[in-house]
Design a protein around this nucleic acid. Structure first.
Lengths: 226, 226
DNA sequence: CGGTCATGTGACTGGGTAGTCACACGCGAG
DNA sequence: CTCGCGTGTGACTACCCAGTCACATGACCG
């Protein structure tokens, strides 16, 4: 947690610092991200930084927490379908919200990606935070889906969760690169309708694949042998 | 490419150096991996290292090339099914070989993962090398599958490739962590039959999901709207 | 006015890094 | 024996990093 000094700052200054910090940690893994670069860009002194935050890790964990908060908040900004409608409509909603999150807050999104897959000490500390929310949430979803008979029991719950998660995390990584989103200069104008549409269709496709697979139903040659 | 000096070394010494190097770059992203640590562990001097390799990047790109070579060689060590048997048997073969590659050469595998998703300068140089092989290979596979009518045309080719790739790369990352494989001390004894079986089943499951999705076929409520 | 306290500062420390270089060693040819 | 050459070496450079600290600034209070 940042020191009280940070929260005493005028909100705009807090925001500026956080903006620059998000950019730094979106562009680089924890180990490569640099506080020196950060303070230069934010036009504050090294000394000030360390009056705001305990250390690099303190800032980082705070950012991760903020990002998770931000993500949840963004997802829930649109009402999810009622749970009795079933798993797949829910998944579709989740992916649609997620896709908008990517185009809306690409840097938060990238920061969270790095939090899961990046290279740094205190992995467990961070994984605990990121997985606790997303993965246990998915777990409940999938289990309910199985109980309701929508999801095949042939597949292990954990594997289903993994698949959903891997497709999501993979998207989170590749989409900004496919769309040539530059984390340095986020330009709202640059996220055109076309791009938003592209991302929506991307996740529509993933929903379809997760539900039905990619095979035509004519040949089902390779049944699952558990 | 390493300098001639490196190739003049007795093969065992070359191997030792490469072993240590693989470990370093499997455990850390390019930016975090350290040549100083490497030479200490390999019991060679800084000076020697720079008589073997141009620089850090030279060594790294060489390792990536070796890893790709190693992967291809390993995959093809078992004959793939004849192509007329279709896409899904082929995919099953690919995943089965891949799963064995993970348990057999976890460090090479992890190095390649980092080459695709890691954080470093000269991204393009590395991506070019990794994608050229795997992604264009998948592309041919998927296109053939579509032409043969095994893969639904509702799905964009690129998205199908992405899905396969994302599940594979995700596995490559998570499996060693789930199995608690320590890249530091690779102990052949530690890779038990149980673990190998676990990985095989993992990829069997993924093949099934890719082919059929995770839904039971009873409710197909959410058709794909392109 | 003087004092106190929160905040701002940038030179500095200690340590890690990639890469260099002047020198040392040994071996084989002349 | 000596010269040259390929190889080995570790101290050294130049740089970057996280984190510290003695000092500066300025606002508010008595």
């Amino acid at each position: 947690m940042p020191k009280p000094t940070f929260f005493n700052l005028p909100p705009e200054k807090q925001d500026t610092i956080l903006e620059i910090a998000i950019e730094e940690f979106a562009r680089h893994d924890y180990g490569v991200a640099s506080i020196s670069r950060l303070v230069k860009q934010a036009h504050i002194s090294k000394g000030s930084f360390y009056q705001y935050f305990e250390d690099k890790q303190d800032l980082y964990l705070y950012l991760v927490d903020l990002a998770i908060e931000k993500e949840v908040e963004f997802l829930l900004a649109v009402e999810p379908p009622e749970s009795q409608k079933g798993f797949f409509p829910y998944l579709r909603w989740l992916f649609e919200r997620s896709s908008d999150f990517v185009t809306n807050d690409p840097r938060w999104c990238q920061l969270l990606y790095r939090a899961s897959y990046g290279d740094f000490p205190f992995r467990d500390e961070v994984l605990h935070r990121t997985q606790l929310t997303s993965r246990s949430y998915l777990q409940d979803l999938v289990k309910a889906g199985i109980e309701r008979g929508e999801i095949t029991e042939d597949i292990d719950t954990d594997l289903a969760i993994f698949a959903i998660d891997a497709l999501w995390e993979g998207s989170r990584y590749w989409i900004p690169r496919k769309l040539a989103i530059d984390f340095k200069n986020i330009d709202r104008e640059d996220i055109t309708e076309d791009k938003i549409k592209f991302v929506r269709q991307w996740f529509d496709g993933l929903t379809y694949i997760l539900e039905n697979g990619i095979s035509t139903k004519k040949h089902r040659k390779t049944p699952h042998q558990p």
